[in-house]
C-alpha cells in the first residue's frame, strides 16, 4: 500500500491497497451494507410477512386440499412430507426478494451513489444477501412453528437446526442468482417476472410437494437432481430423522455451484458501467 497526499488536500488517499487491506475493507463495507439492509428489513415487515404467509398458504393448500389425493393409500403422514418442501420454497422466495431489493436500488439511484463511493462494490450484493438470509431464518422458524401447530413433529432439535441451516443455505445460493438477474435487468417489475420463470417450474417439478415416483419417468431424472428436490429431500430426512443418502451432499454441491457461478457474475454485471 502506498499513500499519497493530494496536492489539493491534506487527506491521505489510499492508492494501491494490498489484498489484506482490500479484504478488510470489503468485509467492513459488507457489514455496513448489512446494517443498512437490516434497518430496511425492519421498516418493511411486510417482506417477512409475505414470505411467511406464502409458506403458510402452501402448507394449508397442499395439506388440506391436495394432501388427501397425493398421500391416498401411500400410507404416510402427508404433513411430515410436505413441511420440509415448504421450508425450502420459503427460503427460495426470500432469494427472490434479494433481486427485487437490488433492482430497487438501481431505480432509486442509491446504486449510483454507492458506485461513486470508495467502497467495495461486491459488498453491496454481499450485505444484501446476508440480510436476506437472516430474514429467511426468521421466516423459516415461523413457518416451522405454524407446521407444529398443524401437527408436524420434528424428530430432533438438532435435525431441525441443521435442516433450517440447509434451507437457508440453498436460499442463499439462489440469492446470488437473484443478484445476477437484478444486475442484468435492473428493473424491479421485470425482475419479479423473470424470477417467476425459474421459480415456478423448479418448484412444481420437484419433490417438494409430491414424491418423485408419482411423476412420469421422463421427468424423474430432472426432478431427482434439481436443487429444490435435493434440498427438500435432505431437509425431509433431517427433520424426520431418517437417512438422507447423498441428498445433503447434492444440496451442498448446488449451494457451492450457485455461489461459484453467480457471485463473480453478479459482481461483474453490477460493476459494469455504460
Amino acid at each position: 500500500m502506498t499513500t499519497k497526499d493530494t496536492p489539493t488536500n491534506t487527506r491521505t488517499v489510499v492508492t494501491d491497497p494490498n489484498v489484506a487491506l482490500r479484504i478488510r475493507r470489503a468485509s467492513q463495507d459488507t457489514g455496513t451494507v448489512l446494517w443498512r439492509d437490516m434497518i430496511r428489513t425492519a421498516r418493511q415487515p411486510e417482506m417477512l410477512v409475505f414470505a411467511v404467509v406464502m409458506g403458510v398458504f402452501f402448507l394449508l393448500l397442499f395439506n388440506y386440499v391436495f394432501g388427501g389425493a397425493i398421500a391416498a393409500g401411500a400410507g404416510f403422514d402427508y404433513l411430515q412430507y410436505l413441511l420440509p418442501g415448504v421450508l425450502v420454497i420459503t427460503a427460495l422466495q426470500g432469494a427472490q426478494q434479494t433481486s427485487m431489493g437490488l433492482a430497487a436500488d438501481f431505480t432509486e439511484g442509491v446504486n449510483d451513489r454507492f458506485r461513486s463511493l470508495p467502497m467495495s462494490q461486491s459488498a453491496v450484493i454481499a450485505g444484501r444477501t446476508i440480510a436476506d438470509a437472516l430474514r429467511n431464518i426468521a421466516g423459516l422458524v415461523l413457518v416451522a412453528l405454524v407446521g407444529i401447530l398443524m401437527g408436524f413433529r420434528f424428530a430432533s432439535f438438532g435435525g431441525a437446526v441443521v435442516a433450517i441451516a440447509l434451507a437457508t443455505g440453498i436460499g442463499y445460493g439462489f440469492s446470488w442468482l437473484g443478484a445476477v438477474i437484478a444486475a442484468k435487468v435492473r428493473q424491479p417489475d421485470m425482475v419479479g417476472m423473470l424470477s417467476m420463470f425459474w421459480l415456478f417450474p423448479l418448484m412444481l417439478a420437484s419433490t417438494a410437494f409430491a414424491p418423485v415416483e408419482t411423476m412420469p419417468g421422463w421427468l424423474q431424472p430432472f426432478v431427482t437432481y434439481q436443487p429444490i428436490s435435493v434440498a427438500s429431500d435432505a431437509v425431509r430426512g433431517l427433520v424426520n430423522g431418517v437417512p438422507v443418502g447423498d441428498r445433503i451432499t447434492w444440496t451442498l454441491a448446488w449451494i457451492v455451484g450457485l455461489l461459484v457461478v453467480s457471485a463473480p457474475m453478479s459482481v461483474r454485471l453490477y460493476r459494469k458501467v455504460g
Partner: peptide
Amino acid sequence: TQPEAVRQLIGLAGQSAAVDEKL
C-alpha cells in the same frame, strides 16, 4: 486508471445519486 483514488476525493449529488428512502 485510478477510480478508487478518485472516489475518495469526490462527492456526488443530484440527478445522478440518491439517498436510501427507507433510512
